[in-house]
Design a protein around this nucleic acid. Structure first.
Lengths: 153, 153
DNA sequence: CTGAATTAGTTTCATATGTAACTATCATGC
DNA sequence: GCATGATAGTTACATATGAAACTAATTCAG
C-alpha cells in the first residue's frame, strides 16, 4: 500500500531517543561538577581538552570537541577570569594564542576526572563488556554516517 | 597500581560521545523542517506528541516528551499564535486545558512526518537490521539505568 | 465552610547560545 | 610593497533556555 498514512512514534524515533538519552546523561554528569566547581558544560569540555592535549589554540580546542569558536572564546574567557587557564600569544603569528591549564586548572581537572570516570563506569554497568564494545562500535558508525549525510546535502 | 593518574579521553568518553552524536542528528533533522515550516525543535516535538496522542494537557505533553512545563508552555504559545494548535479549557478543572492540532497543524504535521521518517531511514542505513535492534535495546538499557542512577542520588 | 497545601500553567529575570559583524593579523598576487 | 583576501579570535544583538516567582484553580484537613 503505497503512501499509506505514516505515523511517527516519538518514543521509538531514533533522533528523539538519542537526544533524550544524551540529555539525561549530560545533566547527570553536570550535577557532579557544576555545584562543587562552578563550571558549565562547555567550560568543563574545554578544560578536558586542555588537560589532555595542551597546548592548543582556541581553534584546535573547537575542532577537538566539536564546538564553534564563539563558544570556545566565551568558555576560555570565563576560565581565564578564574585563573584556570593561561594564554600565551604565539610570537610567529600573533593572531594565535596557545592555551593551557594553569596550576589551579590542573588541580581542578585532576579532581574532576575521577568523578567523570566513576560516573561513566556506573553508567556502563547497564551493559556487559561485550555490549559496551558493541554499543560504541554502532554509535561510531551512526555518527560517521550522520556526518556524511549532512555533508552530502 | 591503585590511584594511578587517571586520564580522560574525551573522544572515548561515553557522555561526550552521546552528546555529540545526538547533537549532530538533531541538527540534521532540524535542517529538514526549520526553514520550510519555521518550527523550533521544541515546537516540532510538541506537534509530534499532539499528532500522535491528542488531546493532551500541557503536563501530559511534558511527560511524554521529557520537556519541562515552561518549555511546553512557550512552545504551545508559539504554535497557538500561528494557529497550529487549539486549546480548550477543561470544564471540570479549569486549571487544565486540553490541546490538539488544528486542521492547519494536522496538515503541517502530515507533511513533516514523512521527512522525519525518511531521515531516520537514511540514518539507519549505517546499521544492519540486527544491529538496529541491538543498538536500540542497548540504548534503552543505558537510558533506564541512567535514570535510576539519577533518582538514586 | 475555611484556610493551608497542591497543582496547572504563565511570566519574569538572569544566563546561554547562535549568527553575523567586527578587529587584528597574516598570506598572496601583482 | 601594497591592495585583496583569508584566518584567529572577540563583540554585539537577537533568541533560547532554566530557575524561581507568580496567578488561578482545586483539594483536603479540621
Amino acid at each position: 500500500m503505497p503512501n499509506a498514512l505514516q505515523a511517527l512514534e516519538l518514543e521509538k524515533f531514533l533522533p528523539y531517543r538519542l537526544s533524550v538519552l544524551a540529555q539525561l546523561v549530560s545533566e547527570s554528569l553536570h550535577d557532579l561538577y557544576a555545584q562543587p566547581f562552578g563550571l558549565s558544560v562547555t567550560q568543563w569540555r574545554v578544560m578536558a581538552a586542555l588537560g589532555r592535549f595542551a597546548p592548543l589554540t582556541a581553534s584546535d580546542v573547537g575542532q577537538r570537541i566539536v564546538m564553534d569558536k564563539v563558544a570556545v572564546s566565551r568558555a576560555v574567557a570565563g576560565l581565564m577570569k578564574r585563573g584556570l587557564v593561561e594564554r600565551a600569544t604565539d610570537r610567529s603569528d600573533r593572531r594565535r594564542a596557545s592555551l593551557k591549564l594553569s596550576a589551579r586548572g590542573r588541580a581542578m581537572h585532576a579532581r574532576i576526572v575521577p568523578l567523570a570516570l566513576a560516573y561513566e563506569e556506573r553508567l556502563y554497568k547497564a551493559l556487559s563488556p561485550d555490549e559496551r564494545l558493541s554499543f560504541n562500535a554502532l554509535s561510531d558508525r551512526l555518527f560517521a554516517h550522520a556526518r556524511t549525510l549532512r555533508e552530502a546535502t
